[in-house]
Write a protein that binds this DNA or RNA. Structure first.
Lengths: 190, 190, 190, 190
DNA sequence: GATGAATGAGCCTTCATTCAT
DNA sequence: CATGAATGAAGGCTCATTCAT
């Protein structure tokens, strides 16, 4: 007997991510995914109920990856700037290393696939991050604005930088990352 | 293709923008566009060669609007911070007022519709903006980083703020805009 | 403008009936129907939501035809045997003339298309027929059995005769019909 | 194809019969059959060349069963009415007890599976039955009609009664069977 | 032999585009 | 020009059949 091969799920996911990066969510077919992953169309349906489920499962996966990398090595008791720096670097590294996942998530948000509930879940993951910034705010280390704006500010900065680096296939250095961090830090610090 | 009624083009454009905001670029059909605009499917083909041309023409239109609003009231001879402020406010106002166009442009970038050439054109429009920041850099007013990063930083900040405001249907005040501007300014100033 | 042509519905229905008679309900595809009716596959979907609706609408149609022909010229006040004869002849004539409809209805009953509700409706149509036989029973003209059995007996007789005539492409005469009627009548009369 | 386990064939047959009764011939898949029978899809192909052969073999089986039960205890030398009664009761009992086989045979007849040749074989089985009725006709006991019509008449009567009993899950008594027999007998007797 | 994952032809359906009215 | 029915290529999905384990 040929057991259901879980690595195939990974191959399907990887093929989907590459194709979405290249053609956009609107430009891919199940057939393309199967071909790219190296097997027949029908096989996709052994592992996923239908195309929508494939997209949703991949979305969950990407999201989990993001949340996992995001808080790696995060110590809530560390001084604010240290903790902030840890997460900031985590974010930019994750976004660089898993750029196709970033693109995929963005594409999903403006698609018929992701419902409002999914969007809600999206936010919850960032609660520890939010609390950390609130702590920094209480300590008078960051601007006295609604924390949401500070968070968006950080995300926007990172997202644009990563996109540019990727689309222009640039090599980045630790120094570059520190420069970007400083720019971002100068924006939020009080 | 000799359209007598130019207003129809506008109606098609507007319908498309609304539908893309609601359903994403992958979720719309020519029939949906025609229905929303208030006429028959075939009529769309009197004004546009095909769906791709419709999207591309609308993309150009949105892009022109962006460039037009962007530099409104811009005086290159004004002091740097003043000129920077003018454009910053133009950008955020345009993005708020024409949010559906912003969404549309973003969706297009990761679709099969927009080619590499279109992307190149995209950049040229920002040349005056680039030169202005370079001037500020020469004057020692902004950080000594590659100007590209400063530009991306500004764009990313604005984009995330606008998205959040729109999706949560918030009302914004001039004070809010100034707060956001300050955060952004603190990030790039030297 | 090319108005929606209702005669196309008839052509689709006719094509479907012929194909079901030849290949059975399990042997037909939407493509076959369209080809047989003389137009493109997609056209079927201008007139019917999907394959299931096409089948259901045709089922209703066949059923209405049956009920209509069934009671043609039926006079409830006529003597029992006369009224019974009228309907009996109507039934066998209808079944001969519209044999493909008979086959289609039978096929539908053992298919995933027809629900229990449809089956219920099926029965209601025969109420006048049922009442008539009950009257005959009260008058002591037919056997003192549950009317249902008398009805089924009549239907079964007719159905088998018609099938045989059709599959063997026989020509039938009025005399033949009378012979069959007598056999049936002898069975139910008291 | 050297099946070791003959009981598997029976299980496949039984599963098929049940499924056809529930979903119709057009509503079943090989996978459904295998699941219902309690083993893997591929196993079906150890016992049958393909789906068509499975259906055909089952059709033959059902048919043989029918013929076997049909003439159980039949004595050609017995008086006509006795012999006729024997077979009539055999038929109705078989049709009640093996209703799913009756449904299956009927479904097959209007499917792409059964060819004209199979239909021909079908008739041969009834030759003794035909001869018996012809004898009754020669003896002046039944109506002077083509024997075919008398046979169809009997079959139609039985078929409809059985269907109604089954679909309405009625319990039948020996008295009921005799009443039905009498109705049928009154129809054919001279 | 048994298993069930893999295969891909073929089905139902959608939708960009054409064209008769 | 405007209309929307007609077209048919192409996509999502099913399922009979094969085959590696």
């Amino acid at each position: 007997m040929k057991p259901k091969d879980d690595s195939k799920i990974e191959e399907i996911f990887e093929a989907t991510l590459q194709l979405v990066k290249e053609h956009g969510l609107s430009g891919i077919t199940v057939n393309m995914i199967a071909k790219k992953a190296g097997f027949a169309t029908g096989t996709v349906y052994t592992y996923f109920e239908n195309k929508e489920q494939l997209i949703l499962k991949l979305f969950d996966r990407c999201f989990s990856n993001y949340a996992r990398d995001y808080f790696a090595g995060f110590d809530p008791t560390a001084p604010f700037k240290v903790a902030f720096h840890t997460i900031w670097v985590n974010m930019i590294r994750h976004s660089m290393d898993r750029f196709s996942e970033l693109v995929f998530i963005e594409q999903c948000f403006h698609s018929p696939y992701i419902s409002e509930e999914s969007r809600a879940t999206y936010k919850e993951v960032f609660l520890p991050w939010k609390e950390m910034i609130e702590k920094g705010k209480r300590e008078g280390l960051v601007k006295q604005l609604d924390v949401m704006w500070l968070m968006l500010y950080v995300r926007g900065t990172i997202r644009e930088i990563v996109k540019y680096v990727q689309y222009n296939q640039l090599q980045i250095t630790p120094e570059f990352i520190e420069q970007m961090f400083n720019m971002c830090w100068d924006g939020i610090k009080d």
